[in-house]
Amino acid sequence: MGAFAAYTIIGLGLGGIFSLAALGIVLIYRTTGVLNFAHGAMGMFSTFVAWQVFYGWSHPFWPTWLSTLLAVLAGLIFAAIMGLTLEFAVFRWVRTREPVVKAVITIGVLLALQSAASLIWKNNQYHLPIYLAPQQATFQLAGVPIGANYIVIVVMALGLAFGLGAFLRYTSFGRAMRAVSDSPTSASLWGVPVNKVSAVSWMLGSLVAALAGILITPFINFDTTSLTLLIIDALAAALIGGLVSLPLTVLGGFVLGLLETYPTIWIQSLGFPRLVALLVIIAVLIVRNPRGFAVVAK
């Protein structure tokens, strides 16, 4: 039973990671209509910038909290600039194209960012995480110790989900974002400042990606590909949320985290849990589309 509880904790932590990564995807999809395959790569790049500041450029005598703060700030500022740049240079010009074309463009962004990062930081594994909470701090829950950083992740995921949800639902800027996502042409006829709105959307999405990347570093093998590939689990979680619902996405992330953890109790394999997760996702998608004729669903 103890092992089971421990695995549950690990699974929930993993789920928090997936949720965080997935939230940004859903945010960008809902506000710009772009399914961003490059979300993981964007988060990865910003995280490496933070890492560079923390381990590369910080003065050894600075207190850890200062280096951490500076690193996180640097990562976030870089992310904001990257989001804006992508909007100005790329996505502004394809706003009225079909969703699939926009998704393929993000694959181009993914390949470029991924290779640029491995060019700069090589393909090494960096086991040098950035901790937001003290590394050793733990809480006891029903006799099982839980690392503080896990709690940070879970709280962040839930907070972001509800915060972003409320922002989109109740603020006039959030409404404008949803309008642009549905139809940029119509939105401009309603007087919505389309360029401004989509620039902010991309900036926000990129910030969420960076935040997720930085929070995740303590828990995964931190190299250029693993963060980029996190996109696949994140996309799966986002699909459970129908690419729309933020709370369901978080739920999907946790379910996926548990699904990928429990099988490791019985089978020592890196890949097997992925297979389980994939089958579950396909099942969920097919159940969601029960009438069987894909063309009827919008």
Partner: peptide, 19 residues
């Protein structure tokens, strides 16, 4: 009609605040 299919009626009308 130039409307937004995934936005509720009330929220759609609130978009008038943009003009």
């Amino acid at each position: 009609r130039g409307l937004f299919p995934t936005i509720s009626v009330e929220d759609t009308l609130r978009l008038v605040s943009n003009t």
